[in-house]
Each structure stands twice: as C-alpha cells, then as structure tokens.
Design a protein around this nucleic acid. Sequence first.
DNA 1: CTGAAAGCGCTTACAG
DNA 2: CTGAAAGCGCTTACAG
Lengths: 358, 358
Amino acid sequence: LKRRATMKEVAQVAGVSTATVARVLHNNGYVSEEAVQRVRDAIGKTEYNLNVVARSLRQQRTYTLGHILQSMAPNPFFVEVALGAEEYARQKGYSVLSYNVQGSKDTERAAVETFINRRVDAILFTTPVDAANVEFALNSRIPVIQVERPLVPRAHQILVDNYTGATEAVEHLIGLGHRRIAFIGQGAQTLPSTARYVEVERLSAYKDALTRHELPIDPGLIAYTQHYYKLEDRSSLGESYRFTCQLLQSANPPTAIFVTNDIMAAGVLQSIYEANLRVPDDISIVGFDDTYAQFLAPLLTTVRLPMHEIGASAARLAIELIEGQQEEAAEPQKIMTHAELIVRKSTGPVRTDVGLGS
Amino acid sequence: LKRRATMKEVAQVAGVSTATVARVLHNNGYVSEEAVQRVRDAIGKTEYNLNVVARSLRQQRTYTLGHILQSMAPNPFFVEVALGAEEYARQKGYSVLSYNVQGSKDTERAAVETFINRRVDAILFTTPVDAANVEFALNSRIPVIQVERPLVPRAHQILVDNYTGATEAVEHLIGLGHRRIAFIGQGAQTLPSTARYVEVERLSAYKDALTRHELPIDPGLIAYTQHYYKLEDRSSLGESYRFTCQLLQSANPPTAIFVTNDIMAAGVLQSIYEANLRVPDDISIVGFDDTYAQFLAPLLTTVRLPMHEIGASAARLAIELIEGQQEEAAEPQKIMTHAELIVRKSTGPVRTDVGLGS
DNA sequence: CTGAAAGCGCTTACAG
DNA sequence: CTGAAAGCGCTTACAG
C-alpha cells in the first residue's frame, strides 16, 4: 500500500466515469446492474475509501459537530453528555470534535474560532460559559445548541427540569421525617445572573418544599461553594467538606443534607466519615447528577440527570437543523428533559432516640 | 453576515493575488510592508477566516489526530489522558477527533475506518482493544501510538512503569507492618495474553515484594475481577465489593488490600463500610490510578498514573512523527512514564491489639 | 517582491 | 443510464 486510491483510479479500473463511481458509492441515481458490479469490484481491488475532506469541501458540509465542554474532569456529567452526543452523531454519520475549555471564557472563544475554521456543521455548548461566545457562534448561521444553561435566549436549548428533581429529593427527606435539612449548592452568587438558571431552580425547589410543609428556612443551613467550576483545585469538594464540618459542630446540626451535585456530596461524606458518624443512621444525604453516586460509600441516593439523553438530544436537534428536517425558524427550540430521584442507601428515617448533637 | 469570505475576495479587496494573501496569512515568503497592510485590512473588513477543510485537501494534512478511547466512562483515566492529548495537540495547532469504543473490537474497527476516511494525521489508541485494529491502522502509513497496552510491538508505545508503582504500594504496606495483604486485580485471566502487560506487571510486583520480605503468597488473598471493561454494569466495582465481603468474613482476613484501580477500590470501601469497619484503623487500602481517590472517604492512598503527561506524550510523539522531526524509523518508539505512590488517609499501621476477626 | 495557474478529490447539474 | 466539466477554497511551484 503506497498511495491511497482516488475515485478517478477506481473509475479507470472499472472503465466508467467518476460520476458513475459516485453514484454507486452513495447509491443514488440510475446505474446499470453491470456497472454497479464493475465499480464494486474496482473499489475492492483498489481498496478505495472515500476522502471525506474532499467531500466536505465540495458539499460545504463536514458532517462534524463541534462540542464545547466546560470540563470533562472532574465532573463526569460532561463526559456522559459527550458520550450521548457522540453516539447519536455517529449513528447518523457525523463525527464530533470536542474541546474542553476548563470553564475559561477565552478558551471557549478559541474553541468557537477553531470550530468555525474547521467548518463544523453545528456547535454544541455543554454548558456555555460566556453568553458573548454563544452569540459569536450564532453569527456563523449554523445551529447552536446550549445544554443545561440557557445563557442566550435566541439559541436552542436542551434543558433539565431541575425544579421537579430537586423537589423529589427534598420531599423524600421530609417524608422520612427530617425537619432540619441543609442545602449545599454551587457557586450561585458568583455566577452572572444570566447563568444562574440551574442553581436558582434547585434552591427554589428546596425552599418551596420546606414552606409547603411549614418548615422554617434557616439561612444557617444553606451554603454555596464559592467557585463555579474552578476545577483545578477541586475546590467545591473541599468547600462542601468544610461546610459540613461546620454544620456537624454546630449547636443544632441538621439530620439531612441535600447537596446539588455528587462531587460535593463526596466532600460531605468525607467530613461525616472523619466525624465518625454513620450514613444514613446519623445523617441522611441526597446528591444530584448520579455521577459519583455509585462509587461512594454508602451508595448515594441522588437525583439522576438523564445525561446520555441530554447529549443525544443535543446531537439530534443539531442534526435535524443541519439537514433541514426542522425549519431554522425564528423561534429557538427548547427541549426539556427530566431528572429523577434514585433512592439508594444514604437516606433513612430521622433518628428519634437521640439528637445528633448529644 | 451572509456568506463567509474566501481568500479570493480578500485578495480582491486588497488588490493583490490570493498567493499574496496566503503569504501574509502564514507569513512566509516575501511580501512588501504595504501589501501586508492592505491584506490585513482586507481580512478585517471581510471578516475572513481560513477554511481549514480546503487547506487540508490541498496539503494532504488535516492537522487532526484521531484518538480512540476504550471508554471514558466510568474510568476517568481515559478522560485525563484525552485531556492531556487534547491540550498538547491544541497548542500545536491540531484538533483531536475522539471515538469511544466501549471496549468493543468492532467499534474500534469502525473508529479506525472513520479516521482513515477523515484523513487524520495520526491515530492514538488509549488503550487498544484488538491488535488486528492496530495493524489495520498501521496499514495507512500514518503514525500509530498505543497508550499503556502495547498489543503490537511494531507500533509506537507510551508505557507506564507499573512494576515500580505497584512495588511502592506494597512496600508501603509492608513498612506499616502489614503481613497479610490481599491483591485485587482486573480481568487478567480473561484478557488475551498479548494484552496482559499491565495486569501482569502489577501482580508480579506484589508477589516479588512479598517474597523479598519473606512473606508467603496466599492464593486465597488474590482475586481478579472477571470482566475486562464490561463497563455498562460497572461489574468490576461489584466484583471487588463481593470479593472484599468474602475476605472480611474469612477465618483469617487480611489487614490490608492492594487494589489495582481506584474504581475497584471504591467497591472495596463500600464493602468495608457496610461491615462497619474503619479505614485505616481496621484495614488499610491502597488503590491505583488516582482517579476516584480524592473523592472517596477516607481519602485514598493510591499509585498515581501521570495521566495528563501520558496523553501529552502520545500527542507529542504523534506530532513529531507527522512533522518529520522524528524519522519514522524501523524502530518503534517506546516512551516510559512513571507512577508514584501518593500516601493519603486510607493506610496506617497494622493493628496489633486485636485481630480483625475477633 | 508578486501573480497566473494547476491541482488536491470529490459532487453535481447538465447534456446526451 | 452515463460522462465531461465545473468548482468547492486553498497552497505552491514556477516564472517573472
């Protein structure tokens, strides 16, 4: 094998034109049975395979999706979404070029530029960091999909029903008899207001559930980690750990904690482990995402996000838009997906015999 | 913005030829100061950006690496290697197309075919599943790099010094006074013999360390999970869990366990948690990889693999080979990287007061 | 220092 | 049912 065969060579071997080769390759257009056979043989003989680069240039389509990921590590949420998108895209003949931006606006900008230079057919943001970059992507007149965090109203959106998911979590705890339930969220104050969608929904669900059951909302039981995905130092893990240490040492500690992602839940469990307390005997924990949940001890009760489905939906919408099955209408699409409580082993009835503090 | 500007348009606006535009774009070749200025202006005015697809077709190079990943979930090892490769490649002007094959030979084959059709400049396997697919990739006469698992001797290799890493782990435990140390490995028996590299090295290190200290090798203390990355059901987690349950209930349980990856270590910790034992007070645990280690309770002592460096090395070698800085010699390159024990909180001195069984 | 022109490997009207 | 030919947007000898 020295050089790769081209269509022209296949045509020569088969004694037909390249147009005919193209016709049998994509089987469209009329071709005589005999010609098909000759071309097939020639393809086999020459070990021909299509040059997708040439096809892309000619068709002005690359069959490639550009996927901008906030950061695949340490949060497996992004990995699972990426996997869902990749699998769906593959099955439709598309490849996906991904770009991890580590939560940086500038890197995200560079990602969009790279994708534009490479003429991807659509850009997916999971999740967008900066609205300006989404706008910039929109300028290219290719489909732009925002996953989970709708920073720009006029771009398409794959959303998650955080409110219902979080409600199930808190209701579950209340149903178990818990009345002092702490809430640990992620970085809402430090986010620009347009980006708070996810965080605000989860906190609202928590407050509404307490209120519905006539339980007080105690500000001392609510905390947010400072950093929104300053991932390098795994700070949100450390912060949820520290806040839990504080809670456990307080005069009137909670009997349950609702943590809005599994990573932070890991930090909570570490604190509890060090305090030599048992879960759920001494305190119940509910996480969110269902990423690390199955790897923790005890197995974490958590609100599962349909990560695969989210990724697949993003890819599906993008491809439908590319292929014109959907009108690129004035209205952006909003696709809602649903979170679901998975009860495992980190939640149990509140202890009535003794208080945690005693 | 209706259509994207081409070089021809830029040339027209600047009043020069496309050759000149290309020269200033890549700044090579002589161009008068004045022409440079006019072209720069024209590029700004037309919002021109290079069409990488066209450049790829012309240059017969795509500035794209194809990265075949065994599976990014649930093992973050692959994610970190991918990140390392992506970052290095980016910095050199390359993009990376990744393809998760979920441990399937057929999917891996499809990945190679996709990459060949898309004319990637090199193919990375992290880690290769089937030697035949590596051979197939090799047929294309592009650089082929195998990460961690050298299935095909004549393809390039990024290796890990598993033996030394595992030795440090076991020596650490022995130094702490442990004499009954269990070993939990992954799927070695079920792997084809050419693929056993990693597993065999780790087991040998374990045995050699025991022997060196005149400790007996007890087959009852050694177990392998059945499945090699049958990931969907997270079975290796479940199997390490079950084996640990057995160990703990045995007549003469170990005082320490060396588990050859952090995922399985998570299963071990779950079993210990359920048995209401404390780590490291009752039993010490050492993992491998440093993936989940920081998320577990207690923080896991583990052998850290330089995952980023592994990915970056793979990308660097590939690019050097592509750009001809290295001769594509008869001899495949073998780059060795080093694992390192990270002592955290899951290991401690053996208990001398009471036996675990008592 | 600069431009005209060929050509990378396809696809796709168009003509027959 | 089939082929000749144009053209996607670049890069790169080559000639001047």
